[in-house]
């Protein structure tokens, strides 16, 4: 009887402890100024440009390897935008930060806060300017492929830096998992794109 009561008491205390820990964990969700939220917003915009560039090159060349690479980037990065958007939804956070881009990545000076920044749309590491995008839209065949590969190598390099930056700033498993896949996936694509440039007689 006495032993049963002690066991019951221990069980209740354990349950209370578990609930408290769970609650504390929940209350530890990222805030709007957290690196996780900043990464989710900024990487979404960064990815969106990669999707755009990949669509452009698919319209500007018939070369199958380049078209397939572009297809790969479009589908993967668009899906990742959806994952990051879902995080912000789960955390109940705004999808934008009117305070400016890239504030979570200390040390990087984003163009957003500088009035009339003149960044021409290239507001994050590795992003292409609007001028470069227009040039890609006008190029065709081999010229378009080479332009695309060069722009996308720079784009991926910036993306890898951003993913590494969030890895250094977060313990959240879902963020770490996706950022890791970005680092690994984009690095291997950089190597592939360098080979593709060489095959087309161009340097990076």
């Amino acid at each position: 009887m006495r032993r049963a009561a002690v066991a019951l008491a221990a069980l209740v205390l354990l349950a209370a402890a578990v609930l408290t820990v769970l609650a504390a964990k929940r209350s530890g969700e990222p805030g709007t100024d957290s690196p996780e939220a900043g990464f989710a917003r900024d990487m979404s915009a960064h990815h969106a440009q990669a999707v755009r560039m990949s669509f452009i090159v698919r319209e500007r060349t018939r070369d199958e390897p380049v078209r397939l690479l572009a297809y790969d980037i479009i589908t993967a990065q668009q899906a990742q935008i959806g994952m990051m958007t879902a995080w912000l939804d789960d955390w109940g956070l705004p999808k934008t930060d009117p305070g400016g881009r890239m504030r979570w990545m200390s040390g990087h000076h984003g163009g957003a806060h500088a009035p009339g920044s003149g960044a021409d749309g290239a507001v994050m590491p590795g992003m292409a300017t609007r001028t470069r995008l227009r040039e890609l839209e006008r190029a065709s065949g081999r010229d378009a492929e080479i332009r695309y590969l060069r722009l996308m190598i720079a784009h991926h390099r910036g993306g890898v830096d951003m993913a590494r930056a969030v890895l250094a700033r977060t313990d959240r498993p879902e963020v770490r998992r996706l950022a890791r896949t970005m680092v690994d996936g984009q690095q291997s694509e950089i190597a592939l794109m360098n080979r593709m440039l060489a095959e087309r007689g161009a340097s990076a």
Binding site: A9, V12, A15, A16, T20, A23, R26, L93, P94
Partner: peptide, 22 residues
């Protein structure tokens, strides 16, 4: 024990329904 568990349950419940900042 009862008070501790009630507080923990209430806290956990409140945490699941925080206000949306946006």
């Amino acid at each position: 024990i009862g008070v501790v568990s009630a507080v923990a349950i209430a806290f956990a419940f409140l945490q699941t329904r925080g206000p949306s900042a946006a």
